[in-house]
């Protein structure tokens, strides 16, 4: 199996006035291609710092982090931007779609920063990505014309469009109700199991972690638990088992 992520003894320290805060105190783990990993932890556990490091938004103070074989600590600001563009697909809690911009244009956005993609290819790939998250009929909708679940699916399409080696989700179901959360997790499981996408999902909900194949738990900047999930729950089945909702009609 190919290693997508290799973390060895990652430390991250921040200078807060005269005090030094150590957010990560030696984190080591590997993620292989095709894994669906959740990273759990309460607030203050270093979860956010680890997410920023994994997402190449931040560099570790010490230790080695290899993303798809590239050592992140040695990269310049511009090289990090290129890594984020081509190897990582971000999904955020607040969707972070551009307002008053169609779904298609939102999904096209990462391709604008990829100089190898032509204008025609950009449209085609964005439309295909929206098709993949079952929003083929909402291509020209604005974010404010879509439900939260649909907006998050647009965000997932945006994460997929550049064919990254890893999807990095940050509390991606945090703003959604139970049914919609399950829908998003069903989509994630589908991408993972049927299309072989590697997914790293940061969350604090144990409920969500049950859908992944492996859970890493952080506490006080250290990995305290790293276990393979023996019984992966199927979000699709959970969704089917939910009682009919009267909240809204799809």
């Amino acid at each position: 199996m190919k290693k997508i992520l290799e973390l060895h003894d990652i430390m991250r320290e921040f200078q807060m006035g005269s005090e030094t805060v150590r957010a990560l105190k030696g984190v080591s783990f590997d993620v292989f291609a095709g894994e669906f990993v959740t990273i759990m932890g309460s607030s203050g556990s270093g979860k956010t710092t680890l997410l920023n490091t994994l997402g190449c938004l931040d560099k570790p103070s010490s230790g080695t982090y290899l993303l798809d074989g590239v050592s992140v600590r040695e990269q310049s600001r511009d090289q990090l931007a290129k890594l984020r563009n081509q190897k990582i697909g971000f999904v955020f809690q607040a969707y972070n779609l551009l307002p008053r911009t169609t779904a298609l244009e939102n999904v096209e956005l990462p391709l604008f920063y990829n100089p190898t993609v032509t204008a025609a290819e950009r449209r085609e790939r964005a439309a295909a990505a929206l098709q993949a998250v079952k929003l083929g009929d909402r291509i020209n909708h604005m974010p404010n014309e879509m439900s939260g679940g649909q907006q998050q699916r647009v965000a997932i399409a945006r994460a997929l469009v550049n064919e990254p080696v890893m999807i990095l989700a940050d509390e991606a179901t945090g703003n959604l109700d139970t049914r919609t959360s399950y829908e998003i997790m069903a989509l994630m499981q589908d991408l993972n199991q049927n299309q072989g996408k590697t997914i790293v999902f940061v969350t604090h909900e144990p409920d969500i972690a049950a859908f992944s194949s492996r859970t890493i738990t952080l506490r006080d900047g250290r990995v305290v638990k790293d276990q393979v999930n023996q019984q992966v729950r199927s979000a699709k089945e959970m969704l089917a088992a939910l009682p009919e909702t009267e909240d809204y009609h799809v």
């Binding site: 997402g55 938004l57 600001r77 511009d78 931007a81 290129k82 984020r84 563009n85 081509q86 971000f90 955020f92 972070n96 551009l98 956005l109 990462p110 920063y113 990829n114 945006r158 550049n162």
Partner: peptide
């Protein structure tokens, strides 16, 4: 600001 953060996260360089 948030939009700029997003653009950077998905691969925009400072000069972009």
């Amino acid at each position: 600001t948030k939009e700029i953060g997003l653009r950077m996260a998905i691969g925009a360089r400072g000069r972009d």
